[in-house]
Design a protein around this nucleic acid. Structure first.
Lengths: 90, 90
DNA sequence: TTAATATATAGACAAATATCTATTGATTGT
DNA sequence: ACAATCAATAGATATTTGTCTATATATTAA
């Protein structure tokens, strides 16, 4: 839960999510979209993975990252709940 | 946008939001729910305010904090959009 | 006007985070 | 088996963040 929000707190990681929404990608594919090093990207991917936002699958030399869609549904409901708000009394 | 996610990255600030969902509160009211100092709370409130998540209104000596409900609707849609995901192809 | 209360701000400090370089581990192709 | 490529890890460093104490500002009450 805390992992989730921390993971989303970084703009680069949110961009990774946007990229993975379009298609699954390897680390080197993703790297082309960022100015930092492969080690840094690996670190960001690790954080997304610990938050359960992404999954990995090896394909030969490559590790293919994809969104963890089942968790995405949970995430959507977490946010909806956080921001659900009845303008009662006031 | 970045302010929003950064604001939500801290568990104490998320708790402040939950408290304000129940009722509007002054700083000293809120302070009773946390172990840290008034200065620290003020800092968290400032971050929530910069993220446009809360509003303030003075009532005598007190500053009453409340959720910025109009922005909350935007926030909900931001999250829905971020996590909207059609399991196309795959 | 002075004292008390409520909140914000300034400045210091420690912990967490993002980044880098260098290296390691895993897989493939020759 | 060896070299090349892809990704993860280790360790160092700089920046950001959360917290504190001390102080300033605003309002109310006496």
């Amino acid at each position: 839960m805390d992992n989730l929000f921390k993971a989303l707190a970084d703009a680069n990681r949110r961009k990774i999510i946007q990229l993975l929404k379009k298609k699954d990608m390897s680390v080197s594919d993703l790297l082309e979209h960022f100015p930092f090093t492969q080690a840094s990207l690996s670190h960001h991917l690790d954080i997304l993975k610990r938050a359960d936002l992404v999954m990995t699958e090896r394909q030969g030399q490559f590790i293919i990252y994809s969104l963890n869609t089942s968790v995405f549904e949970d995430v959507a409901s977490i946010f909806l709940n956080l921001f659900k708000y009845d303008k009662r009394d006031k």
